[in-house]
């Protein structure tokens, strides 16, 4: 065994998601990622099941582990109660922790995701927030998305939202106290540390 294997085995998602794969391929058959990427959840499970330090390191550096959409269709269909999607989540966490995410193009996307999503949580209390969801980044939102974006206060107001307002309601302003609690949770549970590490590693490797 090695550090990577030991850390992976300690992840509760491995215990929950990796039992005894019988290589039936049910997960591949139902997997949306396997249909459109060169990706096989069965192969991932096989490689992890080898519990070989070098093999796992190679996986952590690969593009492959970033292709899963975490829909968990595999979990439903596996006749042995495995959840390759949860195995993927454990692999991704380890790849970020050890800095191997820098080795793949898909892994390096982590910085952008972190800045956008954690920024929204810590600044506004939402994972997604209308004033940071820009049409230019989301042309698929169509002409209506553009209209909503350009007339946010009026459109949200028309349908009864409480955008940035006080009290309860849709898209209300989250109080400073609640935001401070979220920040404290981030600090106490490792999210802040992970964010700072990703920022530092990306900075050192010239990734913006």
């Amino acid at each position: 065994m090695g550090v990577l294997v030991d850390t992976l085995k300690a992840d509760i998602r491995i215990e929950e998601g990796l039992k005894a794969c019988i290589n039936c391929g049910s997960c591949v058959a139902t997997c949306p990622a396997a249909e459109f990427y060169s990706y096989s959840p069965k192969n991932i499970v096989n490689l992890v099941s080898s519990w070989d330090e070098d093999t796992i390191k190679e996986l952590l550096c690969s593009e492959t582990i970033w292709y899963c959409g975490e829909c968990m269709s595999c979990m439903t269909r596996c006749p042995r109660g495995n959840a390759p999607g949860m195995v993927i989540m454990a692999l991704r966490s380890l790849s970020i922790k050890e800095g191997y995410f820098l080795k793949s193009e898909r892994g390096r996307q982590q910085l952008r995701l972190q800045r956008a999503l954690c920024g929204n949580i810590l600044n506004y209390g939402y994972c997604v927030y209308p004033r940071t969801y820009h049409y230019e980044e989301h042309p698929e939102s169509g002409s209506i998305g553009k209209w909503v974006n350009e007339n946010a206060d009026e459109v949200f107001g028309r349908v009864g939202a409480n955008l940035d307002g006080s009290g309860t309601g849709v898209l209300r302003k989250i109080s400073d106290k609640a935001l401070a609690e979220l920040k404290s949770i981030f600090d106490a549970t490792g999210a802040t540390e992970q964010m700072e590490r990703v920022e530092q590693l990306c900075r050192e490797n010239g990734i913006e």
Partner: peptide
Amino acid sequence: TTCGGIAYHNECIPQL
């Protein structure tokens, strides 16, 4: 507030 689920499924925050 948010449950943080989207950030979690984007691997931006730990499970804890």
